[in-house]
């Protein structure tokens, strides 16, 4: 052992000369106060939502009855066929709602990104519009549009266009604010206008992020269009709602299984494309 120490010469450096290591800082009062607040918030939330594992255990019989009626699922050809057709309508609502919100989202994102906005007023105005569109849930938009164009998938598409413009515009604006500003400066020096800089420096740099976010929103929108169906905006959500109202729980389970297939397929597709483009 002594041989190893002397021959390798890799023992600890003599510590006398170097300054002592700094002391670890104790937990500050602010950190402790934040911890107490977080715990208190959870206690209040527990009470506010009447959270009770006991109630769940006592009510297990209700669930069992429900499942007994729901299983096995109704796999008759008629149910499957109407379900599949409605699932395609749901997919179509998500697709159109996403695609048709691209132009409005792009314009608002360009105005609402600090890297491309023409001035402070446009920036604030665009931010406000995006915030409003994001703050109103798509279900509320759907209810409003149902009163205008009646029950059916068209109201769902309109609802998605409005809500998705708010969300995607915000995400795109943020993507544009995160880019390296070098190419923008280079083109500014050459005398390019704001629109030209956006078209030739900012947008080409964010194409992969934009496509990635678009696919992510398509994925989310297909799932929200299910919920839109519950409030009467067509698609398979509408069928799920109907079968619950008619106590046809077996039919409902079949529809839910179709929903699962649809959601997984869309998710896989968008993940695959996002991997390919490296976003």
């Amino acid at each position: 052992m002594s041989r190893a120490a002397t021959s390798a010469g890799a023992g600890p450096l003599p510590g006398g000369a170097a300054p002592a290591p700094p002391r670890r800082r104790p937990v500050s009062a602010a950190t402790a106060a934040v911890a107490v607040l977080v715990v208190a918030a959870h206690v209040l939330a527990w009470r506010g939502t009447e959270f009770s594992p006991v109630a769940l255990l006592q009510g297990w019989r209700g669930m069992a009855d429900f499942l007994e009626q729901a299983l096995p699922p109704d796999l008759s050809a008629g149910v499957l066929l109407t379900g599949a057709r409605a699932a395609l309508v749901t997919l179509a609502i998500g697709l159109l709602g996403t695609t048709l919100s691209v132009p409005s989202a792009l314009v608002l994102a360009l105005l609402a990104a600090r890297t491309t906005t023409p001035n402070r007023w446009a920036y604030q105005a665009a931010r406000s519009v995006l915030s409003f569109l994001r703050a109103v849930p798509d279900v509320v938009f759907a209810l409003v549009f149902v009163t205008a164009v009646g029950l059916g998938p068209f109201a769902g598409v309109l609802a998605l266009i409005f809500h998705n413009t708010g969300v995607m515009g915000k995400l795109w604006a943020e993507a544009m604010e995160e880019i390296d500003l070098g190419p923008r400066d280079a083109l500014r020096v050459s005398g390019a206008s704001g629109t030209q800089v956006a078209a030739h420096a900012v947008l080409p740099s964010v194409v992969p992020q934009f496509v990635g976010l678009l696919l992510y929103r398509f994925d989310v929108n297909v799932r929200s269009s299910l919920v839109l169906g519950l409030v009467g905006a067509g698609g398979i959500g509408f069928l799920v709602n109907q079968s619950i109202k008619l106590f046809r729980f077996g039919e409902m389970v079949t529809h839910l299984m179709l929903v699962m297939v649809l959601v997984v397929a869309v998710d896989q597709l968008s993940a695959h494309v996002r991997r390919r483009i490296g976003a």
Partner: peptide
């Protein structure tokens, strides 16, 4: 201004 161009250390081309 357009008569003056600048070349940067970080080059600043649009890579794509």
């Amino acid at each position: 201004r357009r008569r003056t161009a600048m070349v940067f250390q970080q080059i600043h081309l649009v890579r794509r």
